[in-house]
């Protein structure tokens, strides 16, 4: 690994101050599970690295009465996977955390890192998109909120300026009769990267779908929402036929490439299958 200067801030202000001075030549390290492999193989050569492990404010995972969940950027995938409230109220998010890497990786890898690394296949992105999470971003001019659907701008690119830091995600509260699921396809069961990932999140009311949100990973340059599929479901009962129609529309939203993980055709097939399965499970969970 090329040598670098390491900054050890104790709070968000110190972190932002360092980024304001050295931002363009600096990388932020949280869990390090994406950053260090890229630095070891020479893909990234930052002159300075800012370590977030001493910033306690970034590690809070807390339920807000009536207004959802706040997930600090440094909360680990393992904490997301195991937190009792996340598992019961936001199972799609808990499921995505449980799929990241191995347990040795999940104890390090963070929600913020998964999003800021901005891989098209980031597992925690689809559930957070489907849950309409907002990102809180700190910078030299104060804080701003960005809808997660506007956060990703390209492969490994986000709206974050070099002097900005992702602080937390705000996940809105869900109404009664809501349900969701995240599923991905991988050739191996553990330590693999999604060929396709799909999160579905629905809210039912009087037997019809009041709200549907569907998000896809690894089928476009960024994680994306399948909005036409969502709109086709809203206001209708979720019959097998409606779910099948949404799956077809989700495939139309995908713009997959062919690579060593799978062909574009296989990925389109997976979008249909996983959209159908996640919507079916979301409906079952909404009935509980």
């Amino acid at each position: 690994m090329r040598r670098f200067q390491l900054a050890l801030p104790r709070n968000i202000d110190e972190c932002v101050k360092f980024l304001a001075e050295r931002g363009p030549e600096t990388k932020v390290i949280a869990g390090g599970t994406d950053l260090l492999p890229q630095m070891k193989n020479g893909l990234l050569k930052p002159a300075a690295v800012v370590d977030l492990s001493g910033v306690a404010d970034l590690r809070t995972l807390r339920r807000q009465d009536g207004s959802g969940l706040r997930v600090g950027a440094s909360v680990t995938a393992r904490e997301i996977e195991r937190d009792a409230y996340v598992r019961s109220a936001y199972p799609a998010l808990a499921e995505s955390g449980a799929l990241v890497g191995s347990v040795q990786i999940r104890n390090l890898a963070t929600v913020g890192g998964n999003l800021c690394n901005a891989a098209p296949s980031a597992d925690m992105a689809p559930p957070l998109l489907a849950l309409e999470a907002e990102a809180v971003v700190a910078g030299p001019r104060g804080r701003r909120r960005v809808s997660l659907s506007d956060f990703f701008t390209g492969v490994r690119r986000t709206v974050l300026a070099p002097d900005e830091l992702l602080v937390e995600l705000i996940v809105p509260a869900l109404g009664p009769r809501s349900g969701g699921q995240y599923l991905r396809h991988t050739p191996r069961r553990e330590l693999d990267i999604a060929v396709v990932g799909v999160a579905s999140q629905i809210t039912m009311s009087d037997g019809v779908c009041a709200k549907a949100r569907i998000a896809l990973a690894a089928v476009a340059p960024t994680p994306i929402r399948a909005t036409a599929a969502e709109q086709a479901l809203e206001g209708r009962p979720l019959t097998a036929e409606q779910i099948g129609r949404a799956a077809t529309l989700a495939v139309e939203a995908a713009r997959p490439i062919s690579d060593q993980r799978g062909s574009a055709d296989f990925r389109r097939h997976l979008v249909a299958v996983l959209t159908r399965r996640t919507l079916t499970t979301a409906l079952e969970r909404a009935a509980r």
Binding site: L6, G32, P37, V49, D51, G101, S102, Q104, I105, L108
Partner: peptide, 26 residues
């Protein structure tokens, strides 16, 4: 050296981690 094999596993505050992906000062 990239977190895939687990041979470097140690406990950090009681939890298993890949020590090849942790900076010493962390």
């Amino acid at each position: 050296g990239t977190g895939d094999c687990g041979a470097c596993t140690v406990h950090l505050d009681g939890k298993p981690v890949a020590s090849c992906l942790v900076l010493a000062l962390q």
